[in-house]
Amino acid sequence: MAVVETRKLTKVFKRGHLGAVNNVDLESREGEFLVLLGPSGSGKTTLLRMIAGLEEPTSGDILIGGKVVNDLTPRERRIAMVFQSYALYPHLSVYNNIVFPLKAQGVDKEGQRKQAEWATSLLGIQHLFERKPRELSGGERQRVALARAIVREPSVFLLDEPLSNLDAKLRASAREELEQFQKRLGTTTIYVTHDQVEAMAMGDRVVVMSQGVVRQIGTPTEVYDEPADTFVATFLGSPPMNIIPAEGVIAGFRPEHFLPPGVAERMGAHVSYDFHITHSEYLGAERILYGAIQGGPFDQHRVISRIPATHDADLADGSVHTFAVADRDLKFFDPQTEKRTTVRRLPS
């Protein structure tokens, strides 16, 4: 059974304007880590806030545990949410912050302490009990916010970009930690982020959104390897997928599939183009080559190639080489709808 389900969920902020969220159908499965991914303004946070009950839907239904909860207040939905800002209560100690939801539910003192100890031992923050939020580091605040969310063992966690306030190094470790933590608890989680790395790394399934519409729902592998449309294709992956308008079709291939002489050829059927490298970036483990196709049907079309740094061919800026893409790495999109379409041959 779906833990959280939305049916044709729509939110319009200004009448007559396009909705912030449009006809979203979503189903999150028991114990699943579902990531809502999209650029800012794509409606992912609005969607999450509607699920939480902090925003009223314009139309459509929200179901939690199979029951329509549209008219229930946040407290009646029995969900837990971690905010981007953490929203810790500044005048309360860490302990009182953590037991706050329990107090609101009328749990007795003994139960409060037991639950708080359980939650904090999972996160390793028992030593912070007496501190005030302002005396904590970013990472500690994030853990306190998390402890406050899990303390009453909700059926659903909603997380709104909880890692975006941490610095890059801490974010990587917090990401891994959060993922392990969710697996251990097994609580159904809906996680909002604009960071594709977080989405790919943590999500069991990823919901890619743009302009209030769900573009694709799938596992990280599915959304990356089999993007449903050009938006998903270019939003995921860094650098983004190369998009080339061919006759009556749009062709796309990932930079890591546009390979220097002698590599792609070994993969069987392929198309090759002369690639004029204009400049390159050395990133340690890999090299990003920027340039344009020279000659042929796609003359002067800008493309990007991404090759492992271990590939030691001489690919100097300004030089021209014959790069190739294996046929199976080519994706095709309809030029009108920009959705995926049938495979064809591409002129080389």
């Binding site: 806030r49 939480a52 009950g53 902090l54 207040t73 946040p74 407290r75 969900i79 837990a80 949410m81 905010f83 981007q84 800002s85 929203a87 209560y89 500044p90 706050f100 939801p101 609101a104 539910q105 406050r148």
Partner: peptide, 22 residues
């Protein structure tokens, strides 16, 4: 910050409760 009230409401308070307690 508005987030604090939102958090309180998710944590099980009514708007009035959040107003009085926070």
């Amino acid at each position: 910050p508005k987030d604090i009230e939102d958090a309180a409401m998710v944590d099980g308070l009514t708007r009035w409760g959040a107003f009085v307690k926070l």
